[in-house]
């Protein structure tokens, strides 16, 4: 099975770039080992519908993005099946989040959407200068996100080996815009 971990987000707006930063972080920190499956990591940025031809090539999808949810706090992490999203998820965040939802729905309507999980985190939305700094809440949430992905991949027979244990999510946020993904199966 070919698994795609797709990070979404606008890195120019602090926490709203966490999806992209997080997949770079996971790409830098780990290599992915499995007899049966392959893992590809993609920084999808804000490409939305342009990601359709990519997504449909995979058998399993994990989307990492910001989300909005009722009664939630910045830094709360949600991990759910896209087809059975919890009721409190409202998808009404920033433009790129709405576009991503539309994109997944379009693929689903065509019957091409692989089994998909969403790893969502509530961002701290601030109107400030453009910067790559993340909020403390999101930095703390990255730990939970990391453990969630590891656990889920293990359930899919994928084990992770540390490549660069020193890397932190804050450090990665400063360089992800110019970093090339390593775990790219080239499918």
């Amino acid at each position: 099975m070919n698994i795609l971990i797709l990070g979404i987000g606008n890195i120019l707006f602090q926490d709203e770039g966490i999806g992209a930063h997080f997949v770079h972080y996971m790409d830098e920190k780990y290599e992915y080992i499995s007899q049966k499956n392959s893992v590809t990591i993609v920084d999808g940025g804000t490409l939305a519908q342009r990601l359709i031809p990519l997504i449909v090539r995979y058998d399993y999808l994990i989307v990492v993005d910001c989300i909005e949810a009722y009664d939630s706090e910045p830094g709360d992490v949600y991990f759910f099946d896209f087809e059975n999203a919890p009721d409190e998820i409202n998808w009404q965040g920033s433009a790129h989040e709405v576009e991503m939802l539309q994109t997944l729905n379009m693929i689903r309507m065509n019957g091409d959407l692989p089994p998909s999980r969403v790893l969502g985190v509530i961002p701290k939305r601030i109107d400030d200068d453009t910067a790559f700094e993340l909020s403390e809440e999101i930095i703390a949430a990255a730990d939970t996100m990391e453990q969630t992905v590891i656990k889920h991949l293990e359930s899919l027979d994928v084990s992770l080996r540390e490549r660069n244990p020193q890397i932190t999510i804050s450090a990665m946020a400063q360089i992800s815009f110019k970093r090339e993904i390593v775990n790219d199966s080239g499918i």
């Binding site: 120019l12 453009t130 815009f177 110019k178």
Partner: peptide, 16 residues
Amino acid sequence: MSFRLAGVDERTISLG
């Protein structure tokens, strides 16, 4: 403009 505001240098933005 956004990348310059975020502190990215001239050469790297140009590559982008």
